[in-house]
């Protein structure tokens, strides 16, 4: 998205005739942030810099607004979101091993995203499937009972196939 080319009169719509220039710029902020997130998948800092000079708002103000709303993210996220459950029941049944294996396999640390934005590895408190422990979710699909090495390999295959 070309931030420089954004026309605030167009973005704000007909109500803009009631507003001052400053109010218009402020008024389209959330709307623009949504468009940025849709395009990049998160809110990159460089774009916020550009946005800040375009809207004459300080970067801290933009981050203040963006961080209030749950929808906005500041780190890129991969297409495949893998969450390893480290809740008590899963931990006891060896989810740490699952996490380590996945970390080695995809060369990622917990919380990181691969450079080609294909996969993000995260941990989560409890998914609520303690009966299936240890559990990993791949894009909200639950893979449970990953107790043996064979099952971990199956999980890796499942993630790659997705």
């Amino acid at each position: 998205m070309e931030i420089e080319a954004v026309n605030e009169n167009f973005q704000i719509g007909s109500i803009g005739s009631l507003l001052s220039g400053k109010q218009k710029k402020r008024g389209i902020l959330i709307h623009l942030l949504q468009q940025i997130q849709e395009e990049y998948g998160y809110i990159p800092e460089e774009i916020v810099k550009k946005l800040s000079s375009k809207l004459s708002l300080s970067m801290s103000e933009i981050f203040s607004v963006a961080s209030f709303y749950k929808m906005f993210r500041f780190t890129p996220r991969g297409k495949k979101l893998v969450k390893v459950c480290l809740g008590t029941a899963c931990y006891v049944r060896g989810s740490k091993k699952v996490l380590n294996t996945l970390e080695n396999e995809f060369q990622l640390k917990n919380g990181e995203t691969s450079s080609d934005l294909s996969i993000t590895l995260e941990t989560v408190g409890c998914v609520g499937c303690c009966g299936l422990a240890p559990v990993t979710t791949v894009n909200d699909e639950v893979v449970g009972d990953i107790t043996s090495t064979g099952k971990i390999e199956g999980l890796i295959k499942f993630i790659r196939k997705k």
Partner: peptide, 11 residues
């Protein structure tokens, strides 16, 4: 009379 849509952002 004109109407516009404003989308919330998850709060």
């Amino acid at each position: 009379f004109s109407i516009q849509i404003r989308e919330g952002a998850g709060a």
